Amino acid sequence: DHWEIRVGDITIHLKDVDEEIIRWVEEALRNGDDLEEIKRWVEEVLR
């Protein structure tokens, strides 16, 4: 699977990601969370 999350001008590409993570990231972006923080979290989860 390949996911693209778009929020404003930001697009995040994710592969082999659980839908729950996608929802979490979308929510975090909508809440204005720091992008670097989100990326770190996702990388942590995917490890």
Rank of each mutant, 00 (worst) to 15 (best):
D1N: 15
D9A: 11
R23F: 05
L29R: 01
E36V: 05
H13W: 14
I21L: 09
L46Y: 05
G8Q: 04
D18M: 14
W41T: 03
R47W: 03
V7F: 11
R40T: 04
H13K: 10
E26I: 15
E19Q: 09
R47D: 04
A28L: 07
V7K: 04
H13A: 08
E4K: 09
R40E: 03
W41M: 08
V17S: 05
R30H: 06
E19I: 13
G8F: 08
R6D: 02
K15N: 08
L46E: 01
L46F: 07
N31Q: 08
I5Y: 04
R23I: 04
I12S: 01
E19W: 13
W24C: 03
E44Q: 13
V45F: 15
D34F: 12
E27K: 15
A28M: 11
H2V: 12
E19P: 14
E20P: 06
V17E: 02
L14H: 02
W41A: 04
D33H: 11
D18H: 07
E27I: 13
E20S: 12
L35M: 08
W41Q: 03
H2G: 09
V17K: 08
D16P: 11
R23L: 06
D1M: 15
A28C: 02
D34H: 12
R6T: 07
W24I: 05
I12H: 02
R30E: 04
A28V: 08
I5C: 04
V7S: 03
H13L: 12
H13I: 13
W24Q: 06
D18Y: 14
E26C: 15
R30A: 10
R40F: 03
E20T: 12
W24H: 07
E20G: 07
V45Q: 15
K39W: 14
V17A: 08
E19V: 12
V25S: 00
E36D: 09
D1C: 15
A28T: 07
R23Y: 03
L29K: 01
I38M: 03
E19Y: 12
V42D: 00
A28Y: 10
D34W: 14
T11L: 10
E44L: 13
E19H: 12
V25E: 00
D33Q: 13
E37K: 13
E4N: 08
R47Q: 10
R40H: 04
D1V: 12
G8N: 06
V45R: 14
I22K: 11
D34L: 14
R40G: 03
V45P: 00
H2S: 11
I12P: 01
E27T: 13
L14R: 04
H13V: 12
T11M: 08
E43K: 09
H13M: 12
I38C: 01
D16L: 12
G8P: 01
E20V: 13
E4Q: 12
R23D: 01
R30Q: 05
E37S: 13
E20Q: 13
K39R: 13
D18E: 06
R6P: 02
H2L: 12
I21E: 01
I12L: 13
D16R: 13
V45N: 09
D33R: 15
W24S: 03
H2R: 12
V42C: 02
E43P: 00
R47A: 11
I12Q: 02
H2D: 06
I10M: 08
V25D: 00
H2T: 12
R30P: 00
V25P: 00
H13E: 09
L35D: 03
V17C: 03
N31Y: 05
R47P: 03
R23T: 05
D18I: 14
N31M: 07
D1K: 13
R47N: 10
V25I: 08
W41N: 02
R30M: 09
H13C: 09
L29V: 06
D16W: 12
R6G: 03
W24N: 02
L46G: 01
V7T: 02
I22C: 01
R47Y: 01
E43T: 11
R47M: 09
D16Q: 10
I12M: 10
I5M: 07
R40V: 02
D33N: 12
